[in-house]
Design a protein around this nucleic acid. Structure first.
Length: 539
DNA sequence: GTTGAGCGTT
């Protein structure tokens, strides 16, 4: 195996990193040793100039195809603090100010979810890969000395602190959460993580990392498995994250949509403390997928291709495969959806759908019009996400932007008999209308993400107990992608340009047709364990 | 000897 000698900076002691069989070095390999690095460069002995190493799709290529990486010592490239700023002087001065100002903001961080066996030494050892650790402590039971499963860590640099805060951490086999402790009275926390919608299955984490690294340092990429058509990208710099929100980006020829995610602290406050009415009849909340962003893109051909691709994967007519259309169609009851896949006369129609046709647009040219059947704004309550760019719009979210959980089959009327008293496995903390489930996991996931209502404790739960949280529920439903077309909902769209306003899709019998358990519900998925889901780790 | 949401006997 070929090894590449890499140091963080020129002159530092190098670490040998294993190259792949094809001679390339995975960016992920590099980043495992040098978190935050986005590339490599080296000193050309002949010219004395610094040369960059070719990087493409998560791979770094050796300078020479014949001699490979050679004996050169490569050093890391880190993204500038904010590449989007045009004025270098301004950038440097603000960056400097920021550094000085934020140096003071280093604070103890709480580490939750530690394995019982984790010691202060192993905790320190783990976090030292991020930077100087000034303190690492495990909280223990005074009598037994047994770990309480959480601890604190303090870094010497704000850089390290930020990096740690924006990553997930696998420590001694458990996914741990690192936060600023409540006791510190969290000030404003700008989210570093963005939601990337409309991903296709061939977009892997390296692709995402590679692509988004050009805007700023990417500290984490998370793609829910099984494939859910969305992912999360975390940036070191929250400004970078915010600046991308609302934008469409093309990765591997696919138009993905970046949208913002409410910060952890914000979501917990707003959803636990304020008792929103989920029955308010608001729109579904997925308008961001359709509103404005695509209208003038002129790329309907691409989307046709997209549908084709997913159909080929056998996930036709799910919101995943057709997220452009179905998610937006969720205005009422999610009935009568799936039109996206069946339009255009391209032969993608799936007979298992119940398209009423009211919203279909049978264009002769087979092009799927973008905003066909859009449900946006039919209550006049949506807030276009584009409006959020650069103005911290996420902070202004309120009722108007809430998902229509009723449309998701979720009500606030409590629960049925199987669910009484325990609020079992319902990560929303609200009652569920079990009769209207199952629903489309991707729809729900995307919607809930918008309000940060879903968590990713799945890792530990899967390890430990197979809990019934949202994502594990999604996982269990993964083979039932077609389950999303139940509910005798109606699809009312005042913005609908192609219909008289009604799209009655009676798909109520589709549960069993599609092999989905009728009345599938959260409680059905229960393993019986207590599972009050912490939703804070997903965003 | 078991557990799995939380917030620190400084």
């Amino acid at each position: 195996m070929d090894f590449v000698q890499v140091s963080e900076e020129e002159g530092d002691e190098p670490i040998e990193l294993p190259a792949e069989e094809d001679g390339t070095l995975l960016l992920s390999t590099l980043q495992a040793q040098f978190p935050g690095s986005c590339g490599l460069k080296y000193r050309n002995i002949d010219t004395q100039a610094v040369r960059g190493v070719r990087s493409n799709e998560g791979r770094l290529f050796p300078p020479s195809a014949e001699s490979g990486w050679g004996e050169d010592i490569y050093f890391c490239v880190f993204p500038k603090e904010n590449k989007r700023k045009s004025d270098d002087n301004l950038e440097n001065s603000t960056a400097k100010t920021k550094r000085i100002e934020t140096r003071l903001r280093c604070t103890d961080l709480i580490v939750l979810g530690l394995a019982w066996k984790t010691t202060e030494d192993s905790l320190r050892e783990y976090f030292e890969t991020y930077g100087e650790v000034l303190m690492a402590q495990i909280k223990k039971d005074v009598k037994s000395g047994q770990s309480k499963g959480f601890g604190f860590v303090r870094f010497g640099s704000y850089e390290a602190q930020m990096r740690v805060l924006s990553n997930r951490h696998l420590i001694d086999g458990r996914w741990c959460e690192v936060k600023v402790p409540n006791s510190k009275g969290m000030g404003h926390q700008v989210p570093c993580k963005v939601f990337v919608g409309r991903c296709t299955e061939d977009i892997n984490s390296d692709d995402l990392r590679d692509y988004f690294s050009k805007f700023g340092e990417v500290t984490d990429v998370f793609i829910p498995r099984p494939f859910r058509a969305f992912s999360f990208v975390t940036f070191l710099d929250p400004d970078v994250a915010q600046s991308l929100c609302g934008e469409d980006h093309i990765i591997k020829g696919v138009s993905v949509h970046v949208s913002n995610a409410a910060p952890k602290a914000e979501q917990n406050r707003s959803h636990q403390g304020q008792n929103y009415s989920y029955n308010a009849g608001n729109n579904f909340g997925m308008h961001s997928y359709h509103q404005g962003n695509h209208m003038n893109s002129g790329r309907s051909g691409h989307h046709r291709g997209n549908n084709q691709q997913h159909n080929a994967h056998g996930s036709d007519n799910t919101a995943i495969g057709n997220s452009h259309s179905n998610i937006g169609s969720g205005g009422y009851g999610m009935g009568g959806n799936n039109f996206g896949a069946n339009m255009g006369g391209g032969g993608y129609a799936n007979s298992s759908n119940h398209n009423s046709g009211g919203n279909m647009n049978h264009r002769q040219d087979g092009v799927i019009p973008y905003n066909n059947n859009r449900q946006n704004n039919f209550h006049g309550m949506n807030q276009p996400h584009n409006g959020n760019v650069g103005n911290g719009g996420w902070m202004n979210r309120g009722h108007l932007d809430m998902p229509n959980l009723q449309a998701l089959g979720i009500n606030s009327q409590g629960s049925n008999s199987s669910n009484q008293g325990q609020n079992m496995n319902n990560p929303l903390g609200v009652g569920l209308n079990l009769n209207s489930l199952p629903m489309n996991p991707a729809l729900v996931a995307a919607a809930l993400n918008q309000w940060s209502l879903l968590g990713n404790q799945l890792q530990n739960q899967n390890q430990d107990q197979q809990g019934g949280n949202f994502l594990s529920w999604m996982a269990q439903n993964s083979g039932h992608s077609n389950c999303n077309m139940n509910n005798s909902g109606r699809n009312k769209g005042s913005n609908n340009q192609n219909s008289s306003g009604m799209n009655k899709g009676d798909n109520s019998s589709n549960d069993q047709q599609n092999g989905c358990p009728p009345g599938n519900s959260w409680s059905n998925q229960s393993s019986g364990s207590q599972n009050s889901v912490d939703k804070s780790n997903f965003l």
